[in-house]
Structure formats: C-alpha cells, structure tokens
Amino acid sequence: MKFHHMCIMVSDIDEALALWRDVMGFQVIQRRITPDGEMVDQKTMDDIVRVKDAQFEMTLLMNAEGTMMEINRTITPKLVVTPRSELGYDRTGIRELGLEVSDIDHWFEKIRAAGYETQTEYVWNAGVFGRSFLFFDQDGNLIQLFERSPDVQLEEQPVLD
C-alpha cells in the first residue's frame, strides 16, 4: 500500500495556503467548490459528509516528490473549530502529520520565521533515527518535520507477539 494523501479541514483556505504553498513549497493542482458534478456529485457528497446539501471549498496540492495534500473548508455544514485543548495526545484520532525533509535546521528556522508556533524551542534528536520538530498550523493541527539520519537503514522488523 502506498500513501496517497492527507486531508486537513481548515478554517481558512488562504491561511492554509500561506503554509502549504508559500512556506512548504507545495503547488496547487486543483481548487474548487465541491460537489461540482465532475469530482463528486451531490448525493455522494451528502452520503460522505452525512449532511444534506454538503459543500466544501477544496484545494489539492502536491510537492515535487509527489506527496499530495487535500485542504478543505466546509461551507455546509457550518464549520466548528476544534478547541486546541481537544487536539492533544490524550485524545483519539490522528494527532500529527509527519513529513520527511532534508536540512531540518533550515526548516525549523523557516517555519519559525513564518510565524508558526513550534512544540519545542529546538530541533530534537529522535534516537538513532534522526532529528525532528513539531509545529502547529493556523488551526492547531500538529505537523512534524523529520530528517532521517544518513546512517539509518530502515529494515522490516519481526512482529512481537
């Protein structure tokens, strides 16, 4: 199985693009209001969202390595912003999006210079695997950037019973 994309629901598409396009270097490959009859019809959209007359502002982005992101803002139903206190590691659900990068120190400075809050004031060592840091997007979602140690070769490990 291959990773296809991650969807992040946001409160403001343009603010999200300031991060994903302008800072992270993704290219917008599609921006539209859905349903539009081409990508998805109204019945399917309503069935997916489980709300009659569901509608999203959707933007698909891709980087040079082929990683794809879907950034959505709901129009119908009304958007409810999740309080930051509900986004912690003490809750179920996906808590962070991890992306592998080169030159982690450059990325740390770039993210902080763009005004995003980092979880720590430094890049931390992830054991023998590499170095990393986490930061929050405009809606409080955690994004982890990770630089793999050049000495680490990831091999399949036996499953523990």
Results as ranks from 00 to 15, higher is better:
41 D>M: 02
43 K>F: 10
43 K>W: 09
44 T>L: 12
44 T>D: 07
44 T>I: 12
44 T>R: 13
45 M>H: 00
45 M>I: 01
46 D>V: 06
47 D>E: 15
47 D>A: 15
47 D>R: 12
49 V>C: 04
50 R>Y: 05
52 K>N: 10
54 A>D: 04
54 A>M: 00
55 Q>C: 09
55 Q>K: 13
55 Q>A: 02
56 F>M: 14
56 F>H: 08
56 F>R: 04
56 F>D: 06
57 E>P: 02
57 E>V: 03
57 E>H: 07
58 M>F: 10
59 T>W: 04
60 L>T: 08
60 L>E: 12
61 L>I: 10
61 L>G: 05
61 L>T: 05
61 L>K: 09
62 M>T: 11
63 N>M: 06
63 N>E: 05
64 A>P: 01
64 A>W: 02
65 E>H: 11
66 G>T: 09
66 G>D: 08
67 T>D: 09
67 T>G: 04
67 T>W: 04
67 T>L: 14
70 E>C: 11
70 E>R: 11
70 E>T: 08
70 E>G: 08
70 E>K: 07
70 E>W: 08
71 I>T: 05
71 I>V: 14
72 N>G: 07
72 N>M: 14
73 R>N: 06
73 R>T: 02
73 R>Q: 14
74 T>K: 10
74 T>L: 10
75 I>K: 02
77 P>T: 00
77 P>G: 01
77 P>A: 00
77 P>D: 00
78 K>M: 12
79 L>S: 12
79 L>R: 12
80 V>Y: 05
81 V>I: 15
81 V>Y: 06
81 V>G: 09
82 T>P: 04
82 T>C: 13
